[in-house]
Amino acid sequence: MISLTNIEKVYRTSTIETLALNNINLHIGQGEFASIMGPSGCGKSTLLNIIGLLDAPSKGSISVGGQPVTSYSDQEMARLRNQRLGFIFQSFHLINDLSVLDNVEIPLLYRKQISAAQRRQMAQEALERVGLSNRVKHFPKQLSGGQKQRVAIARAIVGRPEIILADEPTGNLDSVMGNEILSILQGLNNDGATIVMVTHDEAMAKKTHRLIRLFDGTMVGDTTLTLC
């Protein structure tokens, strides 16, 4: 599904050069639920951003569905993100000026073939899926942390992407809410979605199928987990 070959990411300033990722080779297969773990600053989010085409690697190549995408134009990258990827962020990243429904509709705005009525319908269905169909007219500021993250999940899945990338989706939530979010993600995975999740919660990671460990920008472990 997604393959990373010899990925390297270097951050340069005028005085310093930081190697954030070093020689990463990784393949995420269809239907997998993989978690990425490691201490703070080890490059987890950087890796997720590169997998999600939000950031470009300094070296190496990425292919999605067997297609190399490193040389894609802005327009092609945008189309790929829009149609095949969905994102969930730790701090939700909802647009406070828009209602819950409008927030969820965002990915569909950039698909020309979907009418306004279809958009509305699909957004409502996504919100039903995360149990928030009664909050469509609310604004993000009127919601709890857990509710915000559920809106963010609805936004990630509204366009029915094949891959969902979650960057510490439970990081800002209490354990009850965290478990609730994780069970939604598990449900999505059971329905066929490929999920890659960054977490520093060992217990959460153990509920996924595969655990990738990073240390100082290097992949130090890749374990397939057997779920109890």
Partner: peptide
């Protein structure tokens, strides 16, 4: 950032 992440090209 959000709009770009969810598929908005620069032109849009």
């Amino acid at each position: 950032g959000i709009r770009k992440a969810f598929g908005a090209p620069i032109r849009t």
